[in-house]
Amino acid sequence: MTKQNPLGWSVRVSSSDPQGAVVYARKHRSELGAPISFDAEAELPSAVESLLGAIGADLVCGLKDRCKKNRLEVDNVEAVVQGELENPLSYLRVVGEEGSPRLARVTLKIYVETLEDDTAVQNIWDDVLAHSPLYLTLSPVVQFNIDLQIIM
């Protein structure tokens, strides 16, 4: 048996500005802000928003990829991802509040534009969930509510 090393990824995160950080992933660069922001005008996406975006991208891109590999034509896939924290006030260290600012629930609405058979798309979706790195990592500790809608 050949000894195989696990495949890993790394990113570098650097911050010299109290308002945000720069994430370097290979040649790519993105800016992120606070862990959570309650300011609708905040300039940068928060870490939580980025995580929700990553979850959406994982599933949207995963679905498009598997549909392509199974020769199903899909015009568009879109996801709306909402996250709820267990207690956002605990992030602000509000004296007397209980709980934590952990992500407690993620609600996803996935819209798939396709003329393909619903059952075929649903089967691929089930396969995507069964192989999604982020969904499988988080779903044991975060409640996921997922609604897949196939539209023509």
């Binding site: 006030l89 602000l92 260290r93 509000v94 004296v95 007397g96 509040e97």
Partner: peptide
Amino acid sequence: VYFTNYELQ
């Protein structure tokens, strides 16, 4: 410092 109620504050 934030408080959850005025009695604590």
